[in-house]
Computed example of a mutant assay.
Amino acid sequence: MTSEVQHQESSPSKKIYTITPEGRAELKRWVLSPPEQPEARNTFLIQLAWSEQLDTGEILGMLDAYEQEIMSLIRLEQGRADKGQYAPDRSPREA
């Protein structure tokens, strides 16, 4: 990676970084490498497996809380996807 300082009159100087050919080759190697395996263990499923000792109301409360958490994550990801559509300097493929 290389860097260059760009001086500005009305703002502080900023550093502009540029990836080198060696860095681009390493990035390509990493992008083409096999992805990490997702974590197979889901804590909620373990809790659910032991939920027999809970009464029906407690189980329903646990399921409702988990559903709310998942819905919140979905909304977060939808928001990120929406921002990605309007992000500047994005190629159509990135968007």
Rank of each mutant, 00 (worst) to 15 (best):
M1P: 01
M1Y: 08
S3L: 06
S3P: 02
E4P: 00
V5T: 13
V5R: 03
H7I: 08
Q8L: 14
Q8G: 04
Q8R: 15
Q8P: 00
S10I: 07
S10Y: 07
S10K: 13
S11H: 11
P12I: 04
S13V: 05
K14E: 07
K14M: 07
K14A: 06
K15G: 01
Y17E: 09
Y17T: 03
Y17W: 12
Y17P: 01
T18N: 04
T18H: 08
I19Y: 07
T20L: 05
A25R: 15
E26G: 05
E26Q: 13
L27H: 09
L27W: 12
K28V: 11
R29P: 00
R29K: 13
W30I: 15
W30C: 10
W30E: 13
L32N: 15
S33A: 15
P34S: 13
P35T: 10
E36V: 14
E36A: 15
E36I: 13
Q37I: 03
E39N: 14
A40H: 06
N42G: 03
N42P: 04
N42H: 10
N42Q: 10
T43Y: 10
T43W: 08
T43I: 07
T43K: 09
F44G: 04
F44S: 03
F44N: 05
L45N: 06
L45I: 10
A49H: 02
W50G: 06
W50Q: 15
W50E: 15
Q53R: 14
Q53Y: 06
L54E: 02
D55P: 03
T56L: 05
G57Q: 11
G57V: 08
G57A: 14
G57T: 13
E58F: 02
E58Q: 15
E58R: 14
I59H: 00
M62P: 01
M62D: 02
M62T: 02
L63Q: 05
D64P: 01
D64L: 14
A65L: 05
Y66Q: 13
Y66W: 12
E67H: 09
E67F: 03
I70R: 08
I70Y: 02
I70S: 03
I70N: 05
S72A: 13
S72L: 10
L73R: 14
I74Q: 05
I74K: 12
I74R: 11
R75Q: 09
R75E: 08
R75K: 10
L76F: 14
E77C: 13
E77L: 15
E77I: 10
R80S: 00
R80A: 00
A81H: 08
K83N: 03
A87S: 09
P88Y: 05
P88W: 02
D89V: 06
D89P: 00
R90K: 15
S91T: 12
R93M: 00
A95D: 01
A95S: 11
A95T: 11
